[in-house]
Design a protein around this nucleic acid. Structure first.
Length: 453
RNA sequence: GGCGUGUUCGUCUAUUGGUUAGGACACGGCCCUCUCAAGGCUGAAAGACGGGUUCGAUUCCCGUACGCGCUACCA
């Protein structure tokens, strides 16, 4: 079956990409990639009033950010624009002709008929078993209401086809082999199976994914910040980390590996290890995964991304040599911070000695009178140390501490504050080496001068 | 209401009749240490409840409770 797998993600452009939708897209994509199949993107934009081109753009952007590329589907957010693949158009709003033809087919077979201005489907009277790869076989008997009247509307009296109909027609036309979608469609799948049979097409395999809930177990709505994919981009998460985390919600690899690149996930992914129960979204675990990904990220890529987020925070690195920017930023890669937080960890590398602002709280705590001679001695020592390298700076500092009869920490803290304006940050000796002798000495002196006798 | 579906540490999960119920995140402690992290060691922490079946149930069956879904000329 490897060659024939065809799956699709069929979002409705509502103006944002829901995290649950992204997870559905991801599982489809993973399944296709794992089996060497085809991932189709289809836009269900039948609600013309609400579905704008901008709304389609948002979906594209979210999928692209996550790295979920589609093999068939639109190439433009414009519904009448170009597309890729032999089964277009991939916007439902452009497929009216196909739907009308399929409706006629049903009429010809005596399976569709008019009633009250709408067109009804002659539904199966028998219970339908839904074979689901995740949930197992689900028998869906008729409801009380359906006992009376099992038929349902295919085409509304306002001239619009209903979701169940277009969904099945498209899946049949596009040769979809596996329908992987949210749990909320499970019960309705009986209708879909009946329709496939009516068309004489054998239904695809089904896999209904459990839902993603908020941390407190409530349902995620667009009002929840975590429900909207673009927010993760804004908050500075690495997309690979989000993919990794999403994959782990409802699925786990047989080997128990937790930190995985998309390629790692593809290699391990299959439907047989997908859960049946809903999962709560845990931002802390996502963050931890983000740290792991950042730490393992290619340094050049890290620097590139860090420069962008620094620029967004108003810190310009373009005035410095690429080598300087690179070595400065790499001192914080191992910290695994979210990109927007990087600014407050590295700003001291890129601002002038004069505009360095000392954190008031730290200043009150560290710049006590006894710190003045320490800073003076240290600046003198650093002004003349032969080699301005991390190791020699460390040796020098520790020697001075011994000489003064104090612990190294008594020198480290004021020194760090003088150089960076804060008490936390990258490795002190490395940061000073990168800053260079002139700036370190200047900053130490300036700081010493701030302390009144 | 009816039908469907789910329920293992706080959270994500492993385990498909026999385990001291494992891991990860978060949390506590210790070590390391120039800060913050990281890392190492370590601690606390779970099978919703009640019945069966079985020599033996987290695992199979039934019921109860609770959550969720569907029950539309919404998608």
């Amino acid at each position: 079956m490897s060659q024939s797998v065809r799956v699709r993600f069929a979002p409705s452009p509502t103006g944002y990409l829901h995290i649950g939708g992204a997870r559905t897209a991801l599982f489809n994509w993973l399944f296709a990639r794992h089996h060497g199949g085809t991932f189709v993107l289809r836009i269900e934009d039948t609600d013309t009033a609400r579905n704008t081109q901008a709304a389609v753009e948002v979906i594209f952007q979210g999928l692209r950010w996550l790295g979920l590329d589609w093999d068939e589907g639109p190439e433009s957010a414009d519904a009448s624009g170009p597309s890729r693949g032999p089964h277009g158009p991939y916007f439902q709003s452009q497929r009216g002709e196909i739907y009308r033809r399929r409706l006629q087919e049903l009429r010809d077979k005596g399976l569709a008929y008019d009633r009250d201005g709408a067109v009804y489907f002659r539904m199966s009277r028998e219970p339908i078993t839904i074979p689901d790869h995740i949930v197992g076989d689900v028998v869906r008997p008729l409801t009380d209401r359906e006992e009376q009247d099992p038929d349902w509307v295919l085409w509304r009296s306002d001239g619009q086809p209903v979701f169940h109909f277009v969904n099945v027609v498209d899946d049949a036309e596009m040769g979809i082999t596996h329908v992987i979608r949210g749990d909320d469609h499970l019960t309705n799948t009986a209708k879909h199976i009946a329709l496939f049979r009516a068309f004489g097409v054998s239904p695809p395999a089904y896999a209904h994914l459990p839902l993603i809930l908020n941390e407190d177990g409530s349902k995620m709505s667009k009002r929840d910040r975590g429900a909207v994919v673009t927010n993760y981009e804004e908050d500075g998460f690495a997309p690979d980390a989000v993919v990794n985390y999403l994959a782990l919600l409802g699925w786990s690899p047989a080997d128990g590996q937790e930190v995985m690149t998309p390629a790692d996930v593809i290699a391990r992914f299959d439907l047989d290890r997908v859960n049946r129960s809903a999962a709560r979204f845990d931002i802390k675990k996502l963050t931890a995964l983000h740290f792991e990904h950042v730490r393992r990220m290619d340094p050049e890529k890290f620097v590139q991304q860090a420069v962008i987020s620094l620029s967004k925070a108003g810190i310009e690195t373009s005035g410095f040599s690429p080598a300087y920017v690179r070595s400065a930023l790499l001192t914080v890669q191992e910290k695994g911070k979210l990109f927007p937080e990087l600014a407050s960890w590295t700003d001291f590398y890129f601002i002038s000695d004069e505009s360095l602002v000392l954190d008031p709280e730290a200043r009150a705590k560290v710049l006590v009178p006894s710190a003045r001679p320490i800073l003076e001695r240290l600046s003198a020592a650093y002004a003349t140390v032969p080699e301005f390298s991390a190791t020699s700076l460390e040796t020098t500092l520790k020697q001075l501490a011994t000489e003064l009869g104090v612990k190294a920490g008594a020198l480290v803290q004021p020194c760090r504050l003088a150089c960076t304006g804060r008490l936390v940050g990258p490795s002190l000796y490395h940061l000073m080496e990168i800053l260079g002798r002139d700036r370190v000495v200047t900053r130490l002196r300036r700081c010493a001068a701030l302390i009144s006798e």
